[in-house]
Design a binder for these strands. Structure first.
Lengths: 345, 345
DNA sequence: CTTGGCACTCTATGCTGACGAGTGCTAACC
DNA sequence: GGTTAGCACTCGTCAGCATAGAGTGCCAAG
């Protein structure tokens, strides 16, 4: 990281007005406009001098000789880090947020709604990473015999989440055998941590007779798979199509890359992952994220908590030229709200 | 439906060459090219006369006075209905299809793969409608008490599908009460048709004491919801982003509409639904589908069978100007292959 | 019925000059 | 020294115009 260039207050204010103006209407901003808009009673000529300095520092650039200036990625960076004044959301708006998310008791639906909310409030794409369950507690397990040596395992964890999976076995089991195994696991381990169960079952195995043995192995196998799938992260997107309306995405090819990335999820997850461990809000501007597909795009994220523990990340993705001052509080409030609603359940 | 206009062989051949040529390179086709390409030794002037006739019949149109002709929707219609010569897929290609889908035993994964296959072979968007389960047979039901008067219902239908839902109750039930209800349902109704169970439970209700009664109501409520969700259709898409590369989609707005439709699923399902009852392959050209979002788009679909019974539809969606002669066999083979693989399980 | 010929239309391309926006530089001013 | 007005310069946009090329419609001859 290069340290922030040292620029005086006047230059800062001018950069700020320039970026605000550019965010507003997407046109390069010239010295005349800036001298009028900055509220500082400077002549355009003076502004031009300052601009030349800013350009030297790589904070703005001119698309061509006689156009106004446009912020660079570094410019945006300085802007969001030091210059941005975020107005808190109007109370009435917060009410609307609350109304939107209130009284949804299915966590999945809640997350879906939150993503939708982010998207519709910002008119960009909203995304919410699924909460990663901290400790997975076994609540109930059930085995059902299927044809062809297959067993359907149903597993209820953490009070409401139901997982199910088909497992191939070496021999076929009767209903009662499976029932027995399930009973054993339920009575012995209900309420316990799934990872703990695994090791315990392995320990118990030696004491149990052989064909039981095999069912236990199944259980362990099952537990493994469940732990794995609950740890592989995923997210929910809404409003990707909103992004199509932005002029800077005019390029179909770029658009396509972006959509591909959204669908593959790989890159996005990586970005989200970066910010799950960060304390508060994170902003990735343009290629800062490290992925070419996000050229001209910024991602604003915030982790959200469940019982004081960070369990996921949410945010929006939109053009670099987004209204950060409005997007930031929206993301912030949504994260807090989602957290408190998830906790209160 | 207007009947097909009567056109002689020569006009047909010319229309055919015109459309084939237009499909190839997307440029309006002029009389000179046509006279050379048709292999009929006709002078451009003669071709022009024929073209004028075709234009009168609404089969082709000229984008402007001095451009070549371009097929209209009606032109395409006539083309695919009467003129198209479909070359069967090369055997080696069919092998590749088989390899791609072979040895996947999870039906969901199979469908996913089929959709992917359609998309990659045609370089357009592939979609596969999920098979609609014929009769939903109850296999196993389970109730688990949660906090706050809620009950988690787990329901296994048709051997492998697990449904689960949370239900709010008026009072709280103990584990054993719920266990009793589940036992009753399992012993009495396992293997039965879900819709049948509903009416039977209602009949039995009068004979059973009151608080049991309420649990039965739960069960009925549950059954209702399950029946509903298993009948609401859904589909899997792959390769939507491929569509972005087609020039005729240059318009972001149109693109956006299309993506919106793909995400909302409503319209697409309606189109797919139309063809589930049709005997063989269906082709919807442009706005024929009845939805504006599909302007400039065609949909090629084929139903697929499971044990000689149609259970779903698959197909591709792409620009009107697609290579029907290649797309059709791909869709056809995929449908047949998917059907046989689903059946053999 | 077919064909060559011809006038016509329309698009695409490239060039021009006028215009406006904005810049950099310089010299004067406070 | 910082600030400013003035000026020459650069560049993009746009309208206007001419040109070339593609393709048509129509007519008259074969």
């Amino acid at each position: 990281m290069t340290n922030d260039p040292i620029i005086n207050d006047r230059a800062q204010l001018l950069l700020k007005t320039l970026i605000e103006r550019y965010i507003q209407d997407g046109q390069p901003v010239g010295s005349r406009i800036l001298s009028r808009e900055s509220g500082m009673n400077l002549s355009p000529a003076t502004v031009r001098n300052v601009m030349a300095d800013l350009e030297d520092m790589g904070l703005v650039k001119a698309p061509h000789t006689s156009a106004g200036r446009v912020p660079t990625v570094r410019g945006y960076r300085l802007f969001v880090d030091n210059l941005l004044t975020v107005r808190p959301l109007r109370g009435s708006l917060i009410e609307r947020f609350r109304d939107e998310l209130y009284r949804i008791d299915d966590p999945e639906a809640l997350i879906d709604r939150a993503s939708n909310l982010l998207s519709s409030m910002t008119r960009m794409a909203g995304l919410v990473m699924l909460p990663r369950p901290g400790a997975v507690q076994l609540r109930h397990i059930e085995f059902l015999p299927l044809s062809d040596n297959r067993v359907l395992v149903i597993l209820v964890v953490n009070d409401q989440q139901v997982q199910n999976r088909i497992i191939h076995t070496e021999r076929s089991y009767t209903s009662s055998e499976l029932q027995q195994a399930a009973n054993y696991l339920n009575s012995e381990f209900a309420g316990h941590d799934l990872e703990g169960i695994r090791s315990q079952v392995l320990k118990h195995m030696e004491e149990i007779r052989d064909d039981m043995h095999q069912i236990m192995q199944l259980a362990v196998q099952m537990a493994d798979e469940v732990i794995q799938t609950s740890q592989s992260a995923d997210y929910v997107v809404h409003g990707e199509t909103n992004l199509m309306s932005y002029a800077e995405m005019g390029d179909m090819d770029r658009m396509r890359q972006l959509f591909e990335a959204l669908k593959t999820k790989q890159d996005i997850l990586h970005i989200l992952d970066k910010s799950i461990h960060a304390e508060g809000m994170q902003i990735f501007i343009g290629e800062e994220s490290g992925y070419a597909a996000f050229g001209e795009c910024s991602v604003v994220t915030s982790p959200y908590k469940m019982q004081d523990e960070v369990v996921g990340v949410l945010g929006v993705i939109g053009p670099t030229r987004m209204a950060y001052d409005q997007v930031i509080p929206v993301v912030d409030v949504t994260a807090k709200l989602l957290g408190s609603l998830l906790t209160s359940e």
